[in-house]
Design a protein around this nucleic acid. Sequence first.
RNA 1: GCCGCUGUGGCUUAGCGGUAUAGCGGCUGAUUCGUAAUCAGCAGGUCGGGGGUUCAAGUCCCCCCAGCGGCUCCA
Length: 612
Amino acid sequence: MRLLLIHSDHIEYEARKKTKVAEEVAVPKDALDEALAVFCAVESVDEENIEDSVRQAADEIVTTARQLGTTNIMIYPYAHLSSDLSSPEAAVSALKGIEEALKANGEFVVKRAPFGWYKAFSLTCKGHPLSELSRTIVPGEGGAAAPKKEIQHEFFVLTPEGERRDAAAYAGEKTPFAALVRKELGYPNPDGSEPIHVDLMRAKELVDYEPRADVGNHRWMPRGKLIRDLLSDYVLARVLEYGGMPVETPVMYDLADKAISEHAAKFGERQYRFKSGNRDMMLRFAACFGMFSIMHDMHISPNTLPMKLYELSTYSFRHEQKGEVIGLKRLRAFTMPDMHTLCRDVDGTLTAFEEQLAMGWKSGEDLETPLVGVFRCTRDFYDQYELWVKELVAKSGVPMLIEVLSDRVHYWIAKVDLAAIDAQGRPIENPTVQIDVESSNRFDIKYYTPEGTEVHPPILHCSPTGSIERVICAMLENTAAQEVPSFPTWLAPTQVRLVPVAERHVCFAEEISARLNAACIRADVDDRDESVNKKVREAGMDWVPYVVVIGDQEAETGRLTVTIRKLSEKKKPYKETMSEDELIQAVKMETAGKPFRQLYTPRQLSRKPRFI
RNA sequence: GCCGCUGUGGCUUAGCGGUAUAGCGGCUGAUUCGUAAUCAGCAGGUCGGGGGUUCAAGUCCCCCCAGCGGCUCCA
C-alpha cells in the first residue's frame, strides 16, 4: 500500500462521474479544514494480508496525525501512487478498514472520498517540513504483529511408564532432555558463546558463507558436498524401505492460486517473493505445495492408502529475520527431506505417525546424533487420544515433554519434534512428524468411499532426519564433547589416508589406494613432498579415521601399521598391524548398511586444492 | 527486524592518529624423511564498503554491509 500524507489547511472534493468500479454508497461531495489528507493506493501485495496492511496503515496515520496535532483526517483513494494495484474489491475493503480503524480510535474526525469515481478536488498544503510524507506498507512487515488469539500452553513430562511428571522437575538436570525442557519452558540460557560448528564448517572445508548470495544461502565445498549427498542417500534409503515414492516438484509457486496464497498467508512466515512477468511468485518453504498438487490431480483409491510421497526439498526457502540466521542451524535456503503421507482415516494416521516417529529416533542412532523429544497437540486431541500418546512415549522408551495447546493455531493437531542438543545446551530441532487436518481440504485432495462419500483425509508431514544442514550442524556440535573429534567413518570425506615415507613409496601406496577405492573405500595418498610428521599431523587435522604410513617395512612385509582414530586418545594414537584385506574388512564392518560414494577430491593430495 | 559486540593478505593475527606485524598457507629452491609442523628465499594488503573530521585515519565520527551474542520469531 502506498500512502501520501499531506497536512493541509483545506481539502475538498466532488465526485463527478462513475467508473466501472465505482462505490455505490458514497458521500458525493465533502470538505475538511486543518486536515491530514491521506492519499492511498492499495496494491496487489496487500491482498496477501489485507488486515495487516490496514492495521499498519492506520497506525502510521494515527502516529502522523498526533505528531501534527491534527484531529481531522480525509482518506482519499488515489490509484496513481502505484503501478501494481490490488483488485477494486480489496481496495474498497482496505479503505473502509482504515476508515473504521481511525474512527474506532475515537480521537479523530474521519472522512473518506468515494472509490471509483472521477473526482474534482482542491488541496492546499501547509508546507512545513512534516507536511508532506510518503509511506510504503507491505503486509507482514514492520510494526507489532496483529494480536493473535490467546493460546494457553500446558507443559508436562510423560515417562515411558506412563507417569505424568512436572516438567520443571527435569529442568535442573544435566541431561540433553533437560536442555530441551529448559528451552521450551523459556528458561534463559546462560552460555552465550559462539556455536562450535560455525568455525568447524569452514575449517574442515565443508560449507562456507556466500557473500555474493543472500544471507543464509551457503556454498558447499567438495567435502561438505560429499557429506550432504551421503546423508541424502541415507534418508532416501530409509524412505524407500518404508515404502515412500520419490518425486520432484518446482521450487516456486504462483500466489494467485487460492490454495497457495491461503497456505502462505495463514502461516504468515516470511517468504522469498518475486515477480515473474506479471505473476506474483513465492519460493517454497518446504515441498508441501508440489506434493499436494500431485495428490490433488491424482485419482486416489482408498486401497492404495496410506500413500507416501517423498522429496528431498533442495532447497526449502524461508526468509528468516537476519538476526536469526546462523551457521548451519538456521538458514534461508536449506535442504529438507520431506515426506507426505496421505492416510485413509484416523487409525491409519496414528499408525503411520508411530512408524515415522520411529524413523526419527532411528536416524538419531544411525547418525550418532542423540535426540530428545517433545510431543505437541491440541487439548481436544489430547483428551481424545491420551492413551495413544502414552503408548507413543512408551514405545519411544524415553521421557518426552508434552505440550498441550488450548486451541489449534497451525495446520496440525499433533506433532512431534526431535532435537539434538548443541555444545551450549541449545536444541537443534530436527526430525518431525505432524498430523495435518487442513491441507486435504485446501488443496482438494480426496478419495471416495465405497458408498460414494467424498473424504478429505489427514496428511502426515514427516522429515525423518530434519534438514540435512542441521544434521551436519548436530554432528559438528557433538564433536565438542569428543576427546578425539571425528565424523562417523561412513561420512568421513577420506576414510583411509596412505602416507608414503619417501617418494619411492608413493607408487606402492597408490596401488593400495586403488585397491581400496575398488573395494568402495575412500582412500587417498599424501604424495606431497613433506615430512612424514607433517603428513600424519594433517591426516589428524582432516579427522581421517584410518591412517597408514607406507615405507620400506610395508613394501617388504605387506603388513600395514594402521592408526585408528576412533580408538585413539589425545596424544596417544592407537595403532594396529593388519593386512590390506583386514583393513578393508575393518572399514567395511564399520560402514555396513550405510551409503557409499567415491572420493569427491583428488586421490593424490598434491592435486587437491585448498579452499580455505 | 531490534539492542550489543566484532570485521586488518586465503587462514589466524600485531598495531588503536604519523600510509601496515608475524605465523600458517601459496610459489621457488634445498631436503627423501617412520606417526601431530624440515630449512631458506620470494610473492601476496585500496586495513569489510561509502562518506566525514584532520596537515595526516585500520586507528576518531556518521551511514551501510557481513559475522556472532541476546531479544523476537521458527509450518
